[in-house]
């Protein structure tokens, strides 16, 4: 579903990604771990199409298409979802209307009719309950004045409503207390299906206590230096990243 080949990219002339290779198939959940500044968020942003990064080489294919040629909204409409590390506040924009506009944009792109009010309301209430997001926050402006945990729950709610084909979570676990972390993990687990690919970017192993990845990759200094199963995450937890970096340098 997602195939990244020898991807290199820079920000303001500084090379951040130095040849990333990664393949995610439908039904798989991959975790990308790595020290700060290794390029994890850069990778997530480039996949979503954010401005400010120049791709200098390599390619990314998503559902058979050249992903890097698509506009941000086109990627979203083809089922690519990015849960952000810092969800943005939209003062004055009602959370529920935003979600509905977003759902309808995706549905229109798929040639489906817009969702009717009744089923939308029913769905949004049910899913808000699942991610333990206070219903009152649905009526407020998007993320405006939300706590860190509430913002992340809101991201997971959006993900659940939009039912992406490929979900990328960019350090969604950062700064969360244990309850919020569990809710996020539950949200991710609930969405795991045979059709959906997931890419979870995280700095800490602790999220992986609740989410069982099919594969774990370590991104360091712009390259994937090690890939393995769940046990790799535990080894990182015990030994840190230093030894991997040394091995990579050697």
């Amino acid at each position: 579903m997602l195939a990244i080949k020898n991807l290199t990219a820079s920000v303001d002339g500084k090379e951040i990604l130095k040849g990333v290779d990664l393949q995610v198939e439908a039904g798989e959940l991959h975790a990308i771990m790595g020290p700060n500044g290794s390029g994890k968020s850069t990778l997530a942003h480039i996949l979503a199409g954010r401005d400010g990064y120049s791709v200098t080489g390599g390619e990314v294919r998503y559902l058979g298409e050249d992903l890097l040629q698509l506009e941000v909204e086109e990627r979203a409409r083809q089922g690519l979802f990015l849960a952000m590390q810092y969800p943005v506040e939209l003062p004055g924009v009602n959370n529920m209307s935003f979600l509905r506009e977003s759902m309808n944009a995706l549905r229109r792109a798929r040639g489906e009719p817009e969702i009717d009010t009744l089923s939308f309301m029913k769905q949004v209430k049910e899913k808000a309950r699942q991610v333990k997001l206070d219903e009152k926050l649905l009526k407020r402006s998007v993320n405006a004045g939300f706590s860190g945990g509430e913002k992340k729950r809101n991201e997971i709610l959006q993900m659940a409503m939009l039912e992406p084909k490929l979900a990328i979570l960019d350090e969604t676990d950062s700064g969360l207390d244990i309850d919020a972390l569990r809710t996020v993990a539950d949200g991710v687990n609930r969405l795991r299906t045979a059709e959906r690919g997931m890419l979870v970017v995280t700095h800490y192993q602790r999220l992986l206590d609740y989410i069982q990845p099919d594969k774990v990759h370590v991104l360091a200094d712009g390259r994937i230096v090690r890939s393995g199963g769940k046990e790799l995450a535990l080894e990182l937890e015990a030994r840190g990243y230093g030894w991997l970096l040394e091995e990579a340098a050697a």
């Binding site: 941000v72 909204e73 979203a76």
Partner: peptide, 12 residues
């Protein structure tokens, strides 16, 4: 950031 966020959710 706001514009990117909205576009990532499928809006122009």
């Amino acid at each position: 950031d706001q514009l990117f966020y909205c576009r990532q959710r499928g809006l122009t």
